[in-house]
């Protein structure tokens, strides 16, 4: 579904990605892990058309995404849950969700939109309770659910998530990751960027490890979980124990 070959990204003179390749097949849940500043967000922004200058190749459904603006990429079925959620605090929860379906309203797909809205409110019942409330008044976990819900409102084929676990308690992380597994079962393809390597690799089929703009490891999620390097760098013994206790 997604093929990235030899992707290079620049911020002025700084090179944030130096020749990254990655692929995601239809129906897969792939995790991309890496430390701060590795270039994970840069990679996702390049896919979504939010980054102005990149070289290399990004193919989605066999077609290049080069030169496309974000709305055109959303229209192709790619939807992102951005880092830090980026919900619209002054707007109501409902309006935030509806904004996710902006392009579909334009295509007059009102029936499809309201069906999806119901589905998403069922998926996250707390959003239904708070639907009239300003999004800024939600808790961090609720905001993350809203961000996921908003992305789903675009009815994507391919969902990208940038550190959805950031700043959330393990229980909430669990809830969101369970939802992702549920979504994958409905046929959605997912690429998740995480620093919480344990949680991400546990639900993923495959994983990639990004380090300072280079892909250093790739493989089955279970292999990566067992990998010594990954364990040393991203899991840490205490960390993995912590999660085992709760799994």
């Amino acid at each position: 579904m997604l093929q990235i070959r030899n992707l290079k990204c620049y911020y002025g003179g700084i090179r944030a990605l130096s020749g990254v390749s990655l692929s995601v097949s239809r129906g897969e849940l792939v995790a991309l892990i890496g430390a701060n500043g590795a270039g994970k967000s840069t990679l996702l922004q390049a896919i979504c058309g939010l980054s102005s200058s990149w070289e290399g190749e990004i193919l989605f459904d066999g077609k290049s995404l080069a030169g496309l603006k974000p709305p055109a990429i959303v229209a192709r079925g790619v939807s992102m849950v951005p880092e830090g959620r980026l919900i619209f605090p002054p707007l109501s929860v409902l309006d935030n969700l509806k904004l996710g379906a902006y392009l579909r309203y334009r295509q007059r797909d009102h029936v499809g939109v309201s069906q999806d809205l119901e589905k998403i409110l069922d998926l996250f019942p707390v959003l239904r309770e708070r639907s009239k409330q300003n999004a800024g008044t939600l808790s961090g976990g609720e905001q993350q659910m809203l961000a996921v819900g908003r992305s789903l409102m675009a009815n994507p084929k391919f969902l990208l998530l940038d550190e959805p676990s950031m700043g959330l308690a393990p229980l909430v992380v669990r809830k969101i990751f369970d939802t992702l597994v549920q979504l994958r079962e409905t046929g959605l393809t997912i690429l998740i960027v995480e620093q919480n390597a344990q949680a991400a690799l546990e639900i993923a089929d495959r994983g990639y490890v990004l380090e300072t703009g280079r892909m250093v490891l790739a493989g089955e999620a279970s292999q990566l979980l067992a990998d010594k390097e990954v364990k040393r760098a991203y899991l840490g013994k205490d960390y993995s124990k912590f999660y085992e206790g709760r799994g």
């Binding site: 979504c48 974000p70 709305p71 980026l86 904004l99 309203y105």
Partner: peptide, 24 residues
């Protein structure tokens, strides 16, 4: 109260975030 109004309010808050959800 339509799609357009929501998009405008979204732009008002953050152009970058609005563009990420597909608003031109």
């Amino acid at each position: 109260n339509s799609r357009v109004g929501r998009a405008l309010r979204a732009i008002h808050y953050s152009e970058q975030a609005a563009s990420a959800v597909g608003v031109d």
